[in-house]
Design a protein around this nucleic acid. Structure first.
Lengths: 212, 212
DNA sequence: CAAATAAAATTGGATGAACCAATTTTTAAA
DNA sequence: TTTAAAAATTGGTTCATCCAATTTTATTTG
């Protein structure tokens, strides 16, 4: 997988036969096969009896499986931009709906999550999961299953991206302040203000992604 | 994988031991192990030597796709409304982006799909899958992985919903005409017109859902 | 009787030999 | 040179066997 990701193995290239790999990697054929089978199901290689294994063309394995289970595509910067573009469209509307429909219970869980984020920020540690949880809580407050599920699905993607970008003290504080503002707008049932603040939050993220 | 998706195997449930599976499925342990290893790398099960294999807890499983796993949820009318609400927000923007970025290849596949729909409409048979494929082609034309994936996931839902509502000759013809207009807007690179037509299309769907 | 300990059974992890089936390469024949 | 047959290569599968971690059972001990 590493060799394919770095481009040392390019689409169309042949892999060494099982028996050779087993000898070189000092493992049995069965063990090698378990690994190769995983690569095959990830859509990275294809296998033909009698012929051997080859690295699949990228456009082929893109079609095969959704992005969420393709470990290679997630790290590409294009995907980060795609994800941001998607958020720009969905997130403000989500926040607006949350401000219109949130229950008291929704407010409670948001409060809990924000408190955890605040504690994490004191020590500059963790907070990535909690931060994503806040967005999930907003989606839940829309009372719409679809928004909730879409956010859940992209949850892991968000976490992985967050690990990749600079997430220093200043970023933390700015992000937390913006989240607090969004929370207050939802609490006070101000849909339009919530919409605007979510949009502003995303613009900030976009800028912070572009700056370094 | 199917048993886990349908919920027959729930998080925490134990899987039969390798040797038992091998006997029941009439395959060798090595073959069974290749399959189990794939499930493990998909994050669906976890394996502990001496203890056995268990279905992973939902919160541990970042790759799950909730809506697809809960087939019961789909039949509730609330979900149909939720889905429509989501489409109102995402689909016009998706169509707009498609009109801005579509390639000639995108146009080709849209043409093919629309032709298939037209043929289906002549006999009033099928056309549900083809219809969903048109929306998928639009998402693909955005050149954004996320839109494509979200559409892929949700249009298995749409297909199921379509089977449930009245899908008579008149509905077919109206829907097809609207799709043709949207296609032309994308073909002629008219983003705003594409946006407006997609919105109009959704309003029509909403009305047709409400009328009976 | 209850708890601690030891033994046995269970289960995943891994290996090597053997055979089959599809494909490719080599060799021999036309 | 072309064609056909044979051999070698390579993935697909099975089996028997062993190891290591865990769980279960039996035994001992206080």
């Amino acid at each position: 997988m590493e060799l394919i990701k770095t481009g040392e193995l390019k689409p169309g290239d042949s892999l060494p036969p099982e028996r050779t790999l087993a000898q070189k990697l000092n493992a049995s054929r069965a063990t090698i096969r378990e690994g190769l089978r995983i690569l095959e199901f990830y859509g990275l290689i294809e296998s033909r009896q009698g012929s051997g294994r080859r690295v699949k063309a990228i456009q082929d394995n893109e079609r095969q499986q959704p992005l969420l289970i393709n470990p290679l595509l997630v790290l590409e910067s294009q995907v980060i931009n795609d994800f941001l573009e998607f958020r720009f469209i969905v997130e403000p509307e989500t926040t607006k709906l949350a401000a219109m429909r949130r229950t008291d219970k929704d407010l409670e869980s948001m409060t809990e999550i924000l408190e955890e984020v605040r504690v994490c920020n004191l020590t500059d540690e963790g907070g990535i999961t909690e931060d994503a949880l806040f967005h999930l809580a907003i989606a839940e407050a829309t009372q719409n299953h679809i928004f909730k599920d879409v956010t859940t699905i992209h949850f892991s993607l968000l976490k992985r991206i967050r690990r990749g970008i600079l997430w220093d003290h200043e970023n933390r504080m700015v992000s937390f302040a913006e989240h607090m503002n969004i929370f207050e707008a939802i609490r006070d049932r101000q849909p339009e203000r919530a919409y605007a603040l979510a949009l502003e939050h995303l613009r900030g993220i976009k800028q912070r992604l572009a700056s370094p």
